[in-house]
Structures are given as C-alpha cells and as structure tokens.
C-alpha cells in the first residue's frame, strides 16, 4: 500500500520537535485523515482540533508545508509523490500542544465590536441585492487562517493594537447591514487599528471561504474611516456647524 510521510510538530510551550510518521494512503485522503490515522493507530495523545470535516466549522487550521490551511480540505494528492509534508500549529497564537493553539484572543476581540443596532422594530423588508456583500462576509467560518497569515499579527505581534482581518470582516458585515445604524469608524481607527493593514492581501489568499477580505471589506472600511476622520471638506463643514 502506498504511504505518505508526514513530519508533524509534537510538543508544548516548553519544548517540542517534529516527529516523522508514515501513513497509508487512501483515495481522496486529506491531511486531517492522516492525523486521525496517527491518533487511532500510533500516538493516541496527538492533539488536534476538528469538528465537521467538511470545511464548514474552521476548527482544523494548521500550517501545511508552511501554508495556513484547513487540514480537512488539504488533499494528499495535491503534493508531489514522495514529498515529505510538514504539519505544524498556527504560528500567530500561543501553542498549547502539538497542533492546538490558544486562539482565545480572537474571542476577546469580538467582544469589543458594537453589535447590530437598529431602531426599526417592524417587519424588515430587505432586498437580496442589498445583502449580497454582507452575506459574503457572513460566510466566515472563523478558522483564523487570515489572522495567522497577517504579518501585523504574525511578525509584529500587534495583537493589542489590531483586530486582524477576521474582525474587520465582521465589522464590515455590520457596517454594511442595511438596517444597522451604529458607526464603528472610531473603533476601527483606534482600537481596531485598521491603519496597520497595508493591504498586502495575504488574508484574502488563504481564506477557505474565498471572501474578498481586502477588496470588499478592509478597503471600504478604510474609506469610511477616512471620510469620518480625515476628509477636509467634511472637517470644514463640521467646523461651520459648530459655530
């Protein structure tokens, strides 16, 4: 039976190393299947998160040959024959064990975003064409691959100053909701740190839901921030009304 060789990171905060495993290949097999094989047959204690196994829940994020990926949709047959595949945990978040990292920071960030706010208490009439964009953002499965790849978080550790692509997408989904009346530009400018993003589009490239994070969410939000805080004409008008 054909086999694949995987180098999987094993360890915790203190110490760790790559361990090599040989796993028999089945048709259509994905990386997560290989990790499950190891778990059931070789090392019961190998830590991995997963739930749906169909790219719908965003639990099994890891770096496969250095690329942030969902293990459940990374097919083994995409790699060259005899290629050794490395699987390691997300770099941007603190390691717990093996392939599992502490992503709780993301849940804290989310708490700071003003939720949907509307005074319209009647039955809502909303047209499909007005929500296409919002629905695109709401496809997000919170795999945090975009957070992992974003250099502001990954290389510069700006977790305290920058919400990251995931939460810019979430904010965009609220800002562009036809019934929402709140403004989140102050949040975006200050706490959310949208200015840190220099639109390199790395997040868009790794998004398994193919959300156009940079073009459809971040850039329009940056424009809103500019309109509210840096637009000279608006500033002038505001000054007039103050008098």
């Amino acid at each position: 039976m054909a086999k694949v060789t995987l180098k999987v990171y094993r360890g915790d905060k203190e110490k760790g190393e790559f361990k090599t495993y040989e796993v028999p290949i089945e048709d259509g097999m994905v990386i997560l299947d290989a990790i499950h094989y190891i778990q059931a047959n070789i090392d019961n204690d190998i830590a991995v998160r997963w739930n749906c196994k169909a790219a719908k829940c965003g639990s099994c994020s890891a770096e496969v040959n250095g690329k942030p990926s969902l293990m459940c949709k990374t097919r083994l047959d995409r790699f060259a024959k005899d290629e050794v595949i490395t699987v390691q945990p997300l770099k941007t978040f603190p390691l717990i064990k093996d392939l599992v990292t502490d992503v709780s920071w993301n849940y804290e960030v989310n708490k700071h975003i003003t939720p949907l706010t509307s005074k319209d208490e009647g039955e809502w009439v909303i047209y499909q064409e007005d929500i296409e964009r919002v629905q695109e953002f709401r496809k997000c499965i919170e795999c945090f691959l975009c957070q992992d790849v974003c250099h502001v978080l990954r290389d510069h550790d700006k977790h305290a100053n920058f919400a990251g692509p995931r939460f810019l997408v979430r904010t965009a989904g609220l800002e562009m909701h036809p019934k929402d009346t709140a403004s989140r530009t102050k949040y975006l400018k200050e706490e959310g740190g949208i200015g840190y993003c220099n639109i390199t589009k790395c997040c868009t490239e790794v998004c398994p839901e193919e959300i156009h994070i940079t073009d459809n969410a971040i850039i329009p939000l940056k424009e809103r921030v500019v309109d509210d805080f840096y637009d000279p004409i608006a500033k002038f008008l505001k000054g007039l009304f103050k008098k």
Binding site: N44, D45, V48
Partner: peptide
C-alpha cells in the same frame, strides 16, 4: 490504557 498526561490528550478524552 492511554499514554501521556491530561493535557489536551484526545486518547484520554475518548
């Protein structure tokens, strides 16, 4: 029988 300790140990959870 499972190996290792209680830290994120799927074998133990099982």
């Amino acid at each position: 029988k499972v190996v290792n300790n209680r830290t994120y140990n799927p074998g133990w959870h099982m």
